[in-house]
């Protein structure tokens, strides 16, 4: 089953990086959203996949009674999902604000910090 997961992870990475290489911030943003899923699924698969048995101990026992899914990657991913969402929201607002101020969504035209015709630095003292 891991092989199928690896294929899906590979596809997620490919698509997200392809979107990242675009010049339009909206596509880059969607790439960022997919990248989060790709990384989460990568961690999930690296902890091995187990079907349908959540890592929950029944109330009357002290330890799980059968083989359960690996809880550790789940704990890592749970917080990662929320954090990647906050960052996605931040990037979204950043891109939106940039669009409002610069009136473009093309990253080639967003050159306030590194202008094309940058004046040479002064040579005096």
């Amino acid at each position: 089953m891991e092989a199928l997961f690896a294929l899906l992870v590979g596809a997620l990475f490919t698509v997200s990086i392809y979107l990242f290489l675009s010049k339009h911030i909206i596509r880059i943003l969607m790439g960022a959203a997919i990248l989060g899923n790709a990384v989460n699924l990568l961690i999930f698969t690296a902890g091995r996949v187990t079907r349908e048995v959540p890592p929950i101990i029944p109330p009357e026992f002290d330890v799980p009674q059968s083989v359960v899914a690996n809880p550790l990657p789940q704990a890592l991913i749970l917080t990662a999902i929320v954090i990647s969402f906050s960052f996605f929201a931040f990037l979204l607002v950043l891109g939106y604000r940039a669009y409002q101020d610069l009136e473009t969504d093309d990253s080639d035209e967003m050159r306030v910090a590194e202008p094309v015709d940058d004046v040479p630095p002064p040579l005096g003292y």
Partner: peptide, 19 residues
Amino acid sequence: FSIALACGTGFMLYLLAVT
């Protein structure tokens, strides 16, 4: 797309090797 595919394949093979 070639760059993206190379990265994606890299991650896939890496994950396969890990598992």
